[in-house]
Nucleic acid binder design. Structure first.
Length: 508
RNA sequence: GGCCCAUUCGUCUAUCGGUUAGGACGCAAGAUUUUCAUUCUUGAAAGAGCAGUUCGAUUCUGCUAUGGGCUACCA
């Protein structure tokens, strides 16, 4: 058995899409599960679509998610099969192009883009193939002498694969089983272009996968239709025995409507579709990332892993190690999965709840400092323990806890109307005084004393407690009122009571 | 248009010929909570359609429909 080697091979044309992230994740899980190697290769054969910074973005995204690379770009040690950027492998491809040319498996074509365009406009369903190639400008139709002259004159050309028609090509897909397609419907794809001396994706990925000894090609379903071409390429190159196994992953679809998830959907529906924030260097356009939206990488990984794969059990929460342990391509589903943002949020909620309060407090401290609050660590931990379960994100924490740090500036109008009864100011004032005279300082003790006091006075418990909450928080929300008093301290609580009476009774 | 792939609750999915078709998200109701949330309980919610194979089909086959992908000197 050969050592398992898989690759994630994105092209640096912009930020890494979340679907690409999932492809990377499945490659990674498969490699780890089988004690194999995970390579990162950059497919930058289209020089015109290169976007600066995209490669770094890819590496940083994978790193953030805990998808570690063993070999290639972003690996600790690059590895013995480099270079891992296709643009740096120029010198390697030429040899195989010549081999195909010499073996009569490919030919040189001079048709200009304009000529091809007009051909397509002229003939419906025009395809450059066995039917049409003899009516085109190429080394099959031009005299040898003419071809040589054109090449000597540095005329632009492309190399096309010469597909033999009428043969059923079978691709054995690990997820879908046998997929068969007749070679007559495959066109003579461009495999090399003289303009930048680079191969196209089809040739480059076959050559590189072969040379890098890739055993499994795990990629998106959009490659399924061209995989027979790749099989043919392996065959024409004489590598069919070393051909990797294919696994085509179902696509990630839009949550509403139709089509595969695109970058526009994020803006349109208000959630990220990229791992990290990205600013387009040309347009200045901002794309939102999961990281900046407050997601934990573990939650994103967990969510993504289950979009298109499941182990057949009821387990929902998986650590990376558990995913590795349980992952298999056989259990990847065949149909596309709609991106469910609500579920993504739920995963993050779960992960937030699982994090120790100390750890959450540590992150929250940084937010507090940014807002200008210097707070005692134990106090912050205490607050986190009180409010954590009502937050989905670290970024929700401030919204849920601000009243611990700053007195309310205004009071929720609806709540005031409902709970600020005429008798309340007097009762609250008494309560404030009583509070200050208490020896007890813990929530439990205070609860006991205050409740006793209220029932002794025959005051309405619900009304008074809610009014107190209104005075302390400004709204009718939050954890136990006595816990709040404990954290605030009796003095601060009394101050807030006084202020609420001034503000609210002044108005009424 | 041509080719390829897919099709179970609104969504993600389980089921590898015989199940009251299970779980999760979301939704609804109830309980708990002096509030909000959490939590717990309960509920509504699915085999695209039509043939065929079979004692028996969600499961196998075919057709139709629907959805998706590909059809570039892009990946």
């Amino acid at each position: 058995m050969r050592r398992v080697r898989v690759r994630f091979a994105p092209s640096p044309t912009g930020p890494l899409h979340i679907g690409g992230v999932r492809t990377a994740l499945y490659n990674f899980l498969f490699a780890r599960k089988n004690n194999g190697d995970m390579l990162l290769r950059i497919e930058d054969t289209d020089s015109s679509r290169f976007v600066p910074g995209a490669e770094d973005y890819i590496v940083e995204s994978l790193k953030w998610l805990g998808i570690t690379i063993d070999e290639g770009i972003g690996a600790e040690k690059e590895g013995a099969f480099g270079p891992y950027r296709q643009s740096e492998r120029k010198h390697i491809y030429r040899k195989y192009v010549d081999q195909l040319l010499n073996d009569g498996k490919a030919y040189i074509a001079f048709d200009s883009p304009i000529e091809l365009e007009s051909k397509r406009a002229e003939i419906p369903n025009f395809q450059y193939d066995a039917q049409t190639r003899l009516s085109m400008n190429n080394s099959l139709t031009l005299p040898e002498e003419e071809v040589r002259k054109r090449l000597e004159n540095d005329e632009q050309y492309v190399v096309r694969i010469k597909i033999e028609p009428g043969e059923d090509i079978v691709v054995n897909d690990l997820i879908r089983g046998e997929v068969s397609i007749n070679s007559s419907v495959i066109d003579d794809k461009v495999i090399f272009k003289s303009v930048d001396e680079l191969p196209t994706y089809h040739l480059a990925n076959v050559v590189d996968d072969y040379l890098m000894q890739i055993t499994h090609v795990i990629r998106g379903e959009e490659w399924l239709p061209s995989s027979p071409l790749h099989v043919l390429l392996y065959r024409y190159l004489g590598w069919e025995n070393e051909m990797p196994q294919f696994a085509h992953l179902p696509l990630l679809l839009k949550p509403d409507g139709k089509g595969k998830l695109s970058k526009r959907d994020g803006d349109r529906l208000g959630f990220p579709v990229f791992p990290l924030n990205w600013k387009d260097p040309r347009t200045g356009e901002i794309y939102n990332g999961f990281r900046e939206a407050g997601y934990f990488p573990e939650a994103v990984v967990n969510f993504l892993a289950l979009l298109g794969w499941n182990p057949g059990t009821d387990q929902e929460i998986f650590s990376m190690d558990e995913l590795i342990e349980q992952f298999s391509l056989e259990r990847v589903s065949k149909s596309g999965a709609k991106f469910d943002y609500e579920k993504a949020k739920w995963f993050n909620h779960k992960y937030l709840q699982m994090k120790p309060d100390e750890e959450v407090a540590d992150i929250f401290q940084r937010i507090l400092i940014e807002k200008g609050f210097i707070e005692d660590t134990d106090k912050v931990i205490k607050i986190i323990s009180l409010i954590k379960d009502r937050a989905d994100f670290i970024t929700d924490l401030w919204e849920q806890s601000h009243y611990f740090f700053e007195a309310p500036e205004h009071y929720d109008a609806k709540a005031v109307q409902k709970r600020w009864k005429p008798e309340i100011p007097e009762q609250l004032e008494e309560l404030g005084k009583m509070l200050l005279s208490l020896e007890a300082a813990s929530a439990d003790e205070m609860e006991k004393s205050i409740k006793e006091w209220i029932s002794g006075k025959n005051y309405h418990l619900g009304n008074l407690m809610n009014a107190l909450r209104l005075a302390l928080v400004g709204e009718l929300k939050g954890p136990s009122i006595f816990e709040i008093v404990e954290v605030l301290g009796k003095e601060e609580a009394a101050r807030r009571i006084k202020k609420a009476i001034e503000v609210l009774s002044g108005e009424s």
